[in-house]
Design a protein around this nucleic acid. Structure first.
Length: 642
DNA sequence: TGAGGTGGGTTTTTT
DNA sequence: ACCCACCTCA
């Protein structure tokens, strides 16, 4: 393949500079994934071992896209290693955990598990106990989790974090700090790693000289996409990975930085040339994606920002394309109905469904649309929001599997025990204490049965559960069989627990199909936490082409011929939570910029006028970033639907 | 004391 | 849809 024909001059330079540090600053749609794609190809054509190339990025979708595109041209590219920082961390830790004194039998806590663990850790500190005369407006577990996560990802203390983000909880600073330490100790004692720990342990793995040398010898070419979305910790990981050979390429666009809320910082881009002296900086400005009509809206959105981004995207397309169209509707249901009808019309005319996407700020905004699309018989896939593994019934089934994989997983036991009739949180804790004192599954279970197997109202139920878990743990079963045993046991519980159990039963079948790709329960459970299928139905039928529904965050790095952006009201975008802080507000503005630049040919904007929410004004106002005259002037407004 | 049901309040974005 | 505080019943 002649690279010079496939790439423009700057892209070519980025692709062929294979030795030494390179920083690529790339505008939206300027072909940065293309650069990574062809650089991998170029390296392999120059006899570089594909398994010595490592591609890293922050989101799973971007990681998948990157690896998929790279492997299109040359099958050897399939051996290129890569994924999210978290999945890479997991693999390295599995391999080298001993070198930092971490037990190799650690298990991963997903977000929900972490919150449970925090609650368990905090109850031991008695913070939730009511003191007389003191009303407890104490942060809830999910808030605690995000405080602790900010402490790690942004590098602030608990007090500083509270001061910046939760000033109303500042008075609880000492208690919260106590819980944080309790949570850390709890995880250490139980061998649990949460998402943040994966990165922390990876970093300490890389600061171990011997391990760093081993890893650096294996991965000689590092490429990081969406570098503006990495946080300090991830930046340090990149520096540590590249410190020995300096063959690191980072690709990013600070105008598309939308993960500030979790600690991503554009400082990583600024720091990169300092960490890697002699770094070559390449800027890509030509837009290959969108028609000029779309860029005419995107450019002023950038220009209106206080922080200046010097890029102005120029379309390379021959035809200008029409202006994006703004539609107003009475409410979200009218909006959904119209969009679903329009999409059905496009499909009827032969538009490929995988070239159509609907984007929105928050996942719940897609619910009316999901209903309308289903009514219209349009197949769609949903990205972002609640994930498959976070559904209550999936988590239930996984809890049984976690016990089978590790009989001391006390969070899993807690969930499983409280599902049994007559056992609530208090009894579950007593039983768990007994389990913890047994050295192996067999003795632990025997002790539990000895103590609670008779004489309580729940004894029969407990006996049934223990007998089942013992039988299902038998090594003679394959993992597929173990899963179907668990589902068999759980199904009556599910039918009791949920009115809509038939729908949930389908999800469990999907789980059965998914597990066939795995060899061990441990691997299956870890993957479900770190690289899970996106949502119901998704990934189980990837060959199907369907319309995409996605949060703007999850849409980054992707493109479609026709894009609808819905719910463009102040309060939704920008989110009402971002209104108080100018930095957060700018992030919302960049978010709109990202959304607009996803479109290649057609862009439809829309706004429902009526709010359902009591905390917003009754009549919506157009998103302030679109209402700016230099932006609005580039949009055709259609009032007719309202 | 603890299990389990009910009703009221809330819900951003990702790993 | 989920979480939590509160209530009732054994």
């Amino acid at each position: 393949m002649d690279l010079k024909q496939e790439l423009n001059t700057t892209q070519y330079e980025a692709v062929t500079t294979t030795e030494g540090p390179v920083l690529v600053i790339a505008g939206a749609g300027s072909g940065k994934t293309r650069v990574i794609e062809y650089r991998v190809l170029h390296l392999i054509q120059n006899n570089i071992d594909p398994s010595s190339i490592l591609l890293l990025t922050f989101t799973r979708r971007a990681a998948r896209e990157m690896l998929f595109r790279a492997s299109r041209h040359n099958t050897q590219c399939q051996d290129v290693d890569g994924g999210t920082f978290h999945s890479f961390a997991y693999r390295m830790l599995r391999k080298y955990s001993q070198s930092i004194g971490l037990s190799p039998s650690f298990s991963i806590l997903d977000e929900g598990d972490s919150e449970e663990a925090i609650q368990r850790a905090s109850s031991k500190h008695g913070v939730y106990e009511e003191k007389p005369g003191e009303k407890k407006r104490f942060p809830k577990k999910d808030t605690l989790k995000s405080i602790f996560s900010a402490v790690i990802n942004k590098g602030f203390s608990v007090a500083e974090t509270l001061n910046r983000e939760y000033p109303h909880f500042l008075k609880f600073s000492p208690e919260i700090e106590k819980i944080r330490i309790g949570y850390e100790e709890y995880k250490k004692a139980k061998g649990y790693l949460d998402y943040d720990d994966l990165l922390i342990y990876l970093k300490s793995l890389l600061s171990d000289e011997t391990t760093n040398e081993k890893i650096s010898r294996r991965y000689r070419y590092i490429m990081v996409d969406e570098y503006q979305d990495t946080n300090r910790l991830q930046g340090e990981i990149v520096f540590a990975l590249g410190s020995r050979h300096n063959n690191v390429m980072a690709v990013g666009d600070d105008a598309q930085s939308i993960y500030g809320f979790r600690g991503a910082t554009h400082e990583n881009i600024m720091r990169f040339p300092k960490e890697f002296p002699g770094c070559k900086i390449i800027t890509l400005e030509k837009n290959y994606r969108s028609l000029q009509g779309i860029l005419d809206v995107a450019n002023p959105i950038l220009e209106n920002m206080e922080k200046k981004y010097p890029k102005r995207l120029i379309s390379t397309q021959e035809f200008g394309g029409g202006r994006p169209i703004m539609n107003y509707f009475a409410n979200a249901y009218d909006e959904a109905e119209w969009i679903a009808g329009t999409i059905r019309g496009f499909l009827a005319k032969g538009f490929p469904p995988d070239e159509i996407a609907v984007l929105y700020r928050a996942s719940h905004l897609s619910i009316p649309l999901q209903a309308e699309l289903a009514k219209n018989g349009v197949d769609f896939r949903v990205f972002g929001g609640l994930r498959f593994y976070e559904l209550a019934h999936t988590k239930d089934v996984m809890a049984y599997l976690k016990i089978i994989a590790n009989h001391k997983d006390e969070l899993a036991w807690h969930r499983v025990l409280t599902m049994a009739e007559g056992i609530g949180p208090a009894t579950a804790d007593k039983i768990i204490e007994e389990i913890n004192s047994g050295a192996d599954m067999g003795t632990a279970m025997a002790r539990v049965l000895g103590k609670y197997g008779a004489g309580h109202k729940y004894s029969a139920e407990l006996k049934k559960l223990i007998t089942f878990l013992n039988a299902a743990s038998d090594k003679k079963h394959g993992i597929e069989e173990q899963l179907s045993l668990v589902i068999g046991y759980y199904t009556p519980i599910m039918e009791e627990k949920f009115d809509d159990w038939p729908q949930r039963a389908t999800d469990l079948e999907a789980l059965e199909r998914l597990i066939t790709h795995y060899h061990s329960l441990k691997e299956f459970l870890a993957d479900l936490a770190i690289e899970p299928p996106e949502k119901r139905g998704i990934d189980f039928k990837t060959e199907d082409k369907s319309v995409t529904l996605s949060t703007i965050h999850s849409a980054k790095g992707l493109e479609w011929g026709t894009v609808f952006i819905i719910a463009l009201a102040d309060g939704y975008l920008p989110s009402q939570f971002a209104l108080r802080d100018s930095a957060e507000l700018e992030e919302e503005q960049r978010l709109l910029y990202v959304a607009v630049t996803r479109a290649k040919d057609n862009l439809w904007l829309s706004l429902p006028m009526e709010t359902e929410r009591a905390d917003l004004p009754r009549v919506n106002k157009l998103c302030r970033f679109l209402a700016a005259p230099n932006v609005l002037g580039k949009i055709s407004e259609m009032g007719g639907n309202y």
